[in-house]
């Protein structure tokens, strides 16, 4: 077993884990943060995307021990419970950027990462290129792209990062 400590959604957590535990398992099973999903489990679909030190990563391909000492943000950490949604979440709701919703947490965490790296004015071309690692099997991406463009703009006027 390995002792790990990290900040998850602003809260310090410490645990003893088997070194082979994946970050996504740690988040879902130990911390009960089940918003982060396991889709393909082979680093392709992006349903498991979380932020590690502010950068989008696939938590199904990251060992929990490798996040030791780092900061993790999940979909649950974007906006406080009961508070208004994060502008990117709100944009997905407003623009119907989801159907079954399974890929949505990963899509939104990726979208926020895109805005952090590429700014608030995103062309459809940039968004589609950046969504390389996120798969949706229902909607056909059109509304996801529209949601991200709108969410990116809304983030410029929001206090939520």
């Amino acid at each position: 077993m390995a002792k790990i400590s990290m900040i998850v959604n602003g809260n310090p957590v410490t645990a003893n884990v088997d070194p082979r535990m994946l970050l996504v398992q740690f988040l879902r099973e130990n911390l009960r943060l089940t918003g982060t999903h396991v889709g393909c489990d082979t680093s392709q679909c992006g349903a498991c995307v979380v932020h590690l030190d502010g950068r989008a990563v696939k938590s199904c391909t990251t060992l929990a021990v490798m996040a030791d000492g780092h900061e993790v943000k999940t979909i649950e950490g974007l906006a406080a419970d009961g508070a208004p949604l994060h502008p990117m979440q709100e944009a997905f709701r407003e623009h119907h950027g989801l159907q079954c919703g399974f890929c949505t947490p990963g899509m939104i965490m990726t979208a926020v990462d895109i805005v952090h790296r590429k700014g608030n004015d995103l062309t459809d071309e940039v968004i589609r290129e950046e969504l390389e690692g996120n798969l949706c099997r229902c909607t056909g991406y059109q509304n996801i792209v529209a949601s991200i463009a709108a969410g990116a703009k809304a983030m410029a006027k929001s206090d939520l990062a």
Binding site: V49, D113, R117, E130, E132, G133
Partner: peptide
């Protein structure tokens, strides 16, 4: 290489 999340790691 890969996609943005893969390139981060």
């Amino acid at each position: 290489i890969g996609d943005p999340a893969v390139r981060h790691r």
